[in-house]
Design a protein around this nucleic acid. Structure first.
Length: 728
RNA sequence: AUCGAGUUGGAGUAGUCAGGUUAUCUCGUCGGGCUCAUAACCCGGAGACCGGUGGUUCAAAUCCACCACUCGAUACCA
């Protein structure tokens, strides 16, 4: 009997602060699901675990803006995202593997799950008791607002005067002016960026620090072992971290929204476990929760997490975007080694012993998917949201496009034109058309008693060459999949349909099928029968990529076998079984129309796809007097230079009166060319307190409209006015 | 500006870490063929000084140095 292989597929936990967009899908969700389906199809026992990351500051910010409790935000997006993933064909809906619970299953959990919190607290205590979490007093700025609310401030929210050169606007730990770095406590006249009027003082605050430095040597050994497996981006990023030297990292912070510490004392009541430390443990807790909720034995998760007594390690594959690499190659392995060491009492080691938790097998981090050349961005609303995409499009066409265009080695781009092109010319042209040809040709033959009319013509000896080619292509697809090279795998499989198309073309069954009893007819139809089997194999081979169409093809062929029971490697082991479905075959896909799509996307771009409404009642009115305090004037751009020390700034000279000019730094680079602005009449705020921007004094602000979508347009005058005219 | 990644025929992309005969594949394009199929399919051709310059080597897309550009993270920001 074959040994059971245990595989765990993990994907980075999407942050429940908004709907998923195509970037998340291409980098995490889709590759994880493809791998999961592939591993299952290899007959392995597989669990897939992930879920919504629901703690952390951005969620509280969103909650503040909407004036609701953070729980409401995460409830909403957890629901929306879970549904969108299932609609995309990701296997999260199958908590129990269709082959049986012993084969695993999937769980899309959330970090607000009470059991997750409980387990995190257990691990916190375990690590603390073993000396991996050390308490340390740090000094941190704390703002006391007018209404007496005190709040600790992260360094980047503090600014003041530089202790070295004395210039204003220095940041918490570094001065842009003179470049010197210092302790934030040395800052002169510190103030809060969020609330500049608040009183600010340094207070002691205690926090726990994870002693990452204790794992430096073992992590280096681990990284050495992975050199041949990791992709260049993973190697480079990890090396960078290790070379910088690891330092203890705070695992608690002063805030309200998060998991409480497992310490009962007033002092720790206002502190929570830092998200980075808690969410990453979700991989483990989710596996445990899955086995507690669905498996026959609460301890079943161990099969997927611990090295067996025979010394066999389950395979762990983590999918994520490139921004997440160090968490999975440095921090998470360190935590796992810490837990192992805490349990065994041995010193931390990257050599995993039987019964210990295993480290990652591979971390195939993806680069980014860009949208029409720019980055996906929630705040700029430059995104294609998964839920709205799925309202209009077949999920398999998206899966195809993102798979064949996956950002495996470098950033790739999502363009509607390319999506349509690839779907119409490759997916439909090659695969869809091959299947449709085979189906319609077969249905032109007469079926007796609901039998497949092709079965009598099949001769395994014909088409031996093609058979070998196909088998080789499948083997290379398998090799690619073992290395998480999805594009390569899919390409190999698509080549199989090309071979199929060639076979049909050469055998010309349409020509011979009417010639009763001729040798040409049986030869030609033998090939068609062979192609029928190829279609069947393609349904199996493509299922990880195109689950919906595979199932549809399966039923169109009248197959009664359960596809879950067929091994991937046997996809083209023809068993001479010719099933039949008398219904008229239908094309698997519909062609896409680029004009139509672009038109609708324009509509979508014009509406707020977040579903949030701008609430008029929330407008903060200001008094007329306040408005009159702002002095706006007209001016003319008479000079414009690149800012020597900032990528997005121009240094603009404005003629602000008949005989005078002033200098203003404007963040218009990348939006306007210098020539476009030169000579323009603009409106600027004249009495803004002058401020240095990365070394250059800016005496005002040029007004511009911003649609929040990356489009910016400078205000100009309808007709000529003297420079320095009042604007009101 | 700092750090990281990338630049290969019209588009996309493999090969780069472990240098070696005609640089891969898909789309597009051109020519021919075919017509069963969603005007699609089959065969063939053209098209790349592998971002630039210099170096190491018998040999460089591949290694080294410098430069240019693109992308991202961070800083700055209308």
């Amino acid at each position: 009997m074959k040994k059971i292989e245990y595989v765990a597929i993990f994907m980075a936990w999407p942050y429940a602060n908004g709907p998923l967009h195509l970037g998340h899908v291409a980098g995490n969700c889709l590759p994880a699901d493809i791998q999961y389906r592939y591993e299952r199809s290899r007959g392995r026992s597989v669990i897939m675990c992930s879920g919504s990351d629901e703690h952390g500051t951005p969620i509280t910010v969103t909650a503040d803006v909407e004036k609701v409790h953070p729980q409401e935000i995460v409830d909403r997006f957890h629901q929306i995202n879970t549904q969108a993933l299932i609609d995309l064909g990701c296997s999260w809906g199958e908590n129990i593997d269709p082959r049986g619970i012993e084969y695993g299953g999937a769980l899309y959990n959330r970090t607000t799950d009470p059991r997750h919190k409980e387990l995190v607290k257990e691990y916190f205590t375990l690590l603390k008791n073993s000396g991996f979490l050390k308490q340390q007093t740090m000094q941190q700025y704390c703002s006391i607002s007018a209404d007496g609310v005190t709040k600790f401030l992260p360094d980047r929210y503090v600014e003041g005067d530089c202790p070295i050169c004395g210039s204003e606007g220095a940041r918490g730990d570094q001065c842009d002016e003179c470049g010197s770095t210092y302790e934030s406590s040395e800052l002169v006249n510190p103030r809060s960026k969020m609330d500049p009027d608040a009183k600010i003082e340094i207070r002691d605050t205690d926090h726990f620090f994870f002693q990452l430095n204790q794992f430096q040597d073992e992590l280096e050994k681990h990284s050495q072992k992975k050199q041949k497996i990791w992709k260049p981006n993973v190697r480079a990023m990890t090396k960078n971290w290790l070379n910088m030297g690891l330092r203890p990292r705070a695992v608690t912070r002063d805030m309200e929204w998060g998991i409480k510490l497992p310490i009962s004392s007033v002092e720790w009541d206002s502190k929570r476990i830092y998200v980075w430390f808690e969410a990453v443990q979700g991989y483990l807790t989710c596996s445990q929760i899955w086995s507690e909720n669905y498996s026959t034995n609460d301890d079943d998760w161990k099969k997927w997490w611990m090295k067996s007594d025979e010394g066999i390690e389950p395979k762990h594959i983590y999918f994520m975007g490139k921004d997440n690499i160090p968490f999975h190659t440095v921090i998470w392995p360190a935590i796992i080694m810490g837990l192992n060491s805490a349990n065994s009492g041995n010193i931390p080691s990257s050599l995993i012993q039987p019964g210990e938790l295993v480290l990652e097998s591979n971390v195939p981090a993806m680069e980014y998917l860009m949208l029409q050349g720019g980055q996906f961005s929630k705040s700029r609303k430059h995104a294609v949201w998964l839920p709205s995409f799925l309202e209009h499009h077949n999920p398999d066409t998206l899966r195809y496009f993102l798979s064949i265009n996956m950002p495996e080695g470098h950033d790739t781009d999502f363009r509607w034109e390319e999506y349509v092109d690839k779907v119409n010319n490759e997916l439909i042209g090659t695969y869809g058309n091959f299947v449709h040809r085979v189906m319609t040709l077969s249905h032109r033959l007469e079926s007796l008693d609901g039998e497949n009319p092709l079965s009598q013509y099949f001769n395994g000896e014909d088409n031996k060459d093609s058979m070998n080619k196909i088998q080789n292509l499948l083997n290379s697809a398998i090799n690619s999949m073992e290395k998480q090279r999805f594009k390569e795998a899919l390409r190999s499989i698509m080549n199989i349909s090309q071979i199929g198309n060639g076979l049909i073309q050469h055998s010309e069954p349409w020509k011979y099928m009417k010639l009763e009893g001729s040798p040409e007819k049986s030869k030609s139809l033998s090939t068609l029968a062979f192609c029928w089997q190829v279609c069947r194999g393609l349904a199996i081979a493509l299922r990880p990529f195109l689950p919906f169409q595979s199932d549809e093809l399966w039923s169109m062929m009248g197959e009664e076998n359960n596809m879950d029971d067929i091994l991937y490697e046997d996809a083209f082991n023809f068993d001479d079984i010719f099933s039949w479905n008398g219904d008229k075959p239908k094309p698997l896909f519909n062609r896409l129309d680029i004009e139509q799509i672009l038109e609708r996307e324009k509509l979508i771009a014009g509406s707020d796809t977040d579903g949030k409404e701008v609430n008029d009642e929330d407008v903060n009115y200001i008094d007329f007097e306040d408005f009159m305090k702002v002095e706006m004037k007209t001016g003319k751009v008479v000079g414009i230079e690149d800012h020597p020390n900032a990528d997005k700034l121009y240094v603009v000279t404005i003629e602000d009166g008949p005989e005078s000019t002033r200098t203003v730094c404007a963040g218009l680079k990348g939006i306007y060319e210098k020539e476009q602005l030169l000579g323009k009449q603009v409106v600027f705020v004249a009495n803004l307190k002058p401020r240095k921007l990365r070394g250059i004094m800016s005496e005002g602000m040029i007004l511009a409209a911003d649609d929040g979508d990356g489009n910016v347009s400078v205000l100009t005058l309808d007709s000529d006015m003297p420079t320095g005219s009042q604007v009101r």
